[in-house]
Design a protein around this nucleic acid. Structure first.
Length: 589
RNA sequence: GCGGGUGUAGCUUAGUGGUAAAGCUCCAGCCUUCCAAGCUGGCUAGGAGGGUUCGAUUCCCUCCACCCGCUCCA
């Protein structure tokens, strides 16, 4: 069983990331820390570029999205409302025999007779194990099977011929302490809190517990009213946020793909419920087929908006160098959907270690705002004058139908949230009456992307090798990082052809100085020109500019021109210094 | 959290119970008129801690990190 290189490509990528300063292990000089990674000089530029492109395309180039930058530590109630406190801190226990893991609270209740053993000994080998163990048998099963299971347990602990000791039995009712599959005792339940806990203020007691946010989305919901009230936006509109999030993952894996500290880029796009759209427009547009549905229209229902954002996100990836062909679109099946979601599309990328999620675009209904409204007691609804007017002009039949649909949706949510049936019925009726007055809770479409896994995808996608053999028969492999120019960390390398000719050096420094304010330009004069090109190839620099003797006027017609060399094909062209900046800017922005 | 594997320089590897070798990279100098040329010189290493030993990078233990398989994963 020797496969030393399980994933050779991944190893090469990790190695290159370190060698060229894209990604380092966090705290490396102290041995590293599991699940945390740092970005080096090139990685920091790459990440910054990606985030800036996302922010620009999401907010600055749109009229209907605004930004938010919230704190990482928020009121702990936020995580109760969102459901994270419950679902992110499950007590887990393991089967002592098979090591299978269970959620302690989800084990089927069992009754029967428990056979306890205080330990076992192997007289022949002169060994003993003092660990107590127990097996639960349902009524009617022979005690021998419990002993067989127990012997298996002690054999796994090093006794070849276990002789069981201290057997006693006990009646057990509705217990969750045993593995339903084999009756084996489980370990004590241990809490598995996926949220990082901390304490606010100097006293570290339970009253001061706070959490590092496990996602950026909840801050957007919590601040929805403030943003809506101050930004002069009207539904449909979105709130975008980028920032760090933290999850105490059980197993961080696959380089930076699953880290404990990571960064998200999330948009919460708030839309009108379909009942509101129908009241305002008379109909609700639904997707006619796959593909981008075009510019947003007033009569779009949630499905149109959902598809719109899926396609917008794919366009974004395409624009930064992850073409559609490198992505997979996965529509979650109804039984895979989270409880709050109406539909979720995962955009997957084919990583060297498998096809994995890059971004999820979820249609979350009004779950989040409703939860915060319920838990905070503050209204999360919006008022729409137009809706009230339109409502007055509807036929009685239409009003009843829309009102009934809205009522039923609200009732369903409230009951699922655990509100008592009487209360839920009253609240749902009130919500439906509110609709007639122009009030409703917006629904939301959430495109949520992981920055770090996107960086990893860009690196994996850019990675390329070319092997060439020289006249001496020596083969060498070169690495070329084919980043799209808009995300590439360094945009242009500037070189004098030769280092020991002061005129070339002076001119090259001049060109470099003229470019550096506009883009990241790297000046290099060390080594042969080919070596400098190769260095930039490995960093993913799309363009290199070389100042040669023609630049200085050796061939009069070529005075003040430079060669510009293209990373991906080595092609060179001659360009005047005067047009250089515009030429590059057009390609790297 | 479980099981398996790995850990020597920035990278890729070598070797050894007696204090570590090489190639590439990198840095400096010379040279060089466009794709890792050449010459000279230089920096840098056995993950951490403990044990055995006169002596440990080598043997043993513990821990840490990484990889693989489970488990987990909004």
């Amino acid at each position: 069983m020797s496969e030393p290189r399980v994933n050779e490509l991944m190893e090469k990528i990790v190695s290159l990331c370190k060698r060229r300063g894209f990604v380092f292990q966090s705290s490396e000089i102290y041995g590293g820390i599991n699940g945390f990674w740092d970005y080096g000089p090139l990685g920091a530029e790459l990440k910054r570029n990606v985030k800036e492109l996302w922010w620009t395309s999401m907010t600055r180039r749109r009229d209907d999205v605004v930004g938010l930058e919230a704190t990482i530590i928020m009121h702990p109630q936020i995580w109760r409302a969102s459901g994270h406190v419950d679902t992110f801190s499950d007590p887990m226990c393991d089967c002592l025999l098979t090591r299978k893991r269970f959620r302690a609270d989800q084990i089927d209740l069992q009754s029967g007779t428990a056979y306890h053993f205080s330990g076992a000994r192997d007289t022949a080998a002169g060994k003993a194990v003092a660990e107590p163990y127990a097996v639960l048998l349902p009524a009617g099963k022979p005690p021998e099977s419990a002993r067989r299971t127990a012997m298996e347990f002690y054999r796994a602990r090093g006794l070849a011929q276990p002789e069981l000791e201290g057997e006693r039995t006990e009646k057990v009712e509705n217990s969750q302490r045993f593995n339903p599959d084999n009756g084996s005792l489980l370990t004590e339940p241990r809490p598995f809190n996926l949220m990082f806990k901390t304490y606010v203020g100097p006293v570290a007691d339970e009253d001061n517990v706070a959490y590092l946010r496990p996602e950026t989305a909840q801050a957007i919901f919590a601040q929805f009213k403030n943003v809506a009230d101050t930004s002069r936006q009207k539904v449909p509109f979105g709130i975008a946020q980028m920032g760090k999030a933290f999850r105490n993952e059980v197993t961080p894996r696959n380089f930076t793909f699953r880290s404990r500290e990571f960064e998200q880029m999330e948009l919460e796009f708030f839309i009108q419920p379909d009942e509101v759209v129908e009241a305002l427009c008379g109909d609700v547009a639904t997707p006619a087929g796959p593909g981008h549905p075009g510019e947003p229209q007033r009569n779009w229902g949630w499905q149109m908006w959902h598809q719109y954002w899926v396609e917008e996100r794919i366009r974004f990836y395409d624009a930064i160098g992850l073409p559609r062909t490198t992505l997979e679109e996965y529509w979650q099946k109804p039984d895979e959907l989270a409880h709050y979601a109406r539909a979720t599309v995962d955009l997957l990328f084919k990583f060297p270690f498998g096809t994995q999620e890059l971004e999820g675009i979820a249609a979350r209904g009004d779950f989040d705002l409703s939860q915060h409204e319920r838990c905070s007691g503050k209204s999360m609804g919006v008022f729409d004058e137009e809706l009230r007017t339109a409502w007055g002009k509807l036929t009685e039949e239409k009003r009843l139908a829309l009102s009934a649909r809205y009522h039923d949706a609200r009732l369903k949510y409230l009951l699922r949230a655990g509100v008592s049936p009487e209360q839920a019925s009253r609240d749902a009726r009130e919500d439906a009456d509110g609709l007639a007055k122009g009030q409703y809770i917006p629904h939301v479409i959430e495109p949520s992307a992981g920055v770090d896994r996107l960086i990893l995808a860009l690196v994996a996608n850019a990675y390329g090798e070319t092997t060439s053999t020289d006249e001496k028969g020596k083969t060498e492999t070169r690495t070329v990082m084919k980043f799209h120019p808009t995300v590439a960390p360094v945009k242009v390398g500037v070189f004098p052809l030769l280092k020991n000719k002061p005129e070339l050096v002076a001119k090259a420094r001049e060109v470099h100085a003229a470019l550096r304010g506009e883009m990241l330009a790297f000046y290099d004069e060390a080594g042969a020109i080919g070596r400098r090109y190769a260095r930039q190839d490995e960093a993913g620099t799309p363009f290199c500019v070389t100042i040669d003797f023609d630049t200085l006027g050796e061939t009069p017609a070529l005075k003040d021109t430079v060669t510009i060399r293209h990373r991906d094909d080595g092609r060179q062209e001659r360009l005047s210094i005067a047009e250089l900046k515009a030429y590059l800017l057009a390609r790297v922005r």
